[in-house]
Amino acid sequence: MNIYVLLKRTFDTEEKITLVNGKINEDGVEFIINPYDEYAVEEAIQVRDAQGGEVTVVTVANEFAEKQLRTALAMGADKAVLINIEEDVAYGDPFTTAKIISEYLKDKDADLIIAGNVAIDGGSGQVGPRVAELLNIPYITTITQLKIDGINVSVTRDVEGDAEIIETSLPLLVTAQQGLNEPRYPSLPGIMKARKKPFEELELDDLDIEEADVAAKTKTIEIFLPSKKEAGKVLSGDMSEQVKELVQLLRAEAKVI
């Protein structure tokens, strides 16, 4: 089985966001594998271990994403591909990313592609479905279970809390939802092995992509931080009086009940 994982490098969830010159400040920030993509890596490894085959982790990023790709290799992925766009594209949107990924994947005969359901930074949730559409293969988003039998696939999909059981077939793209699995931590031998695993770095030229082919269709014109919430009123006194006061405040002052 030829399995590909789409992986994005993203800010650690602990990070606070600050701006410099109207842009997100990346100085001193810790980066991680997008948490949903960790589920994707784990699932890919489990499918490979059950079915045989190979797991390739792909990212579109700058050189710094090597660290997150090495982590995925240490978890057990077989190969990593870094499509380094640093030199070529100044601005991208989810279309750009999806187009680059699909150009890379179009001749790879992928049986299964696993992405995260959403990136916790950009947050559009577009890249998975867009890649599937560009490759003209079916996709199922927000999955919490994946069962493969030959080319037949049974998937459980989380739909706002309900679970849909869906039958489809390979080739297929799925996006991972929380609950799919428990991602493993890289082991020490895993980390040692990761250093020697195939690691390919590509540029748009290598994929025969012109910058104009992947030009973004949307543009960010401003980034801002939400207005800081002031700490409010902590009530005091007898508990039943506090609760009465709270309900009164919610009714008369905040007008929300």
Binding site: F11, K16, I17, L19, I24, I120, D121, G122, G123, A215, A216, K217, T218, K219, T220, I221, E222, I223, F224, L225, P226
Partner: peptide
């Protein structure tokens, strides 16, 4: 002269304003 869309990024830790430039 543009339709400007505001959306959260970094799970609501920041916001961005976007416009459509093509299509």
């Amino acid at each position: 002269g543009n339709l400007v869309f505001t959306r959260p990024i970094y799970s609501g830790k920041a916001f961005e304003k976007k416009i459509v430039t093509d299509g």
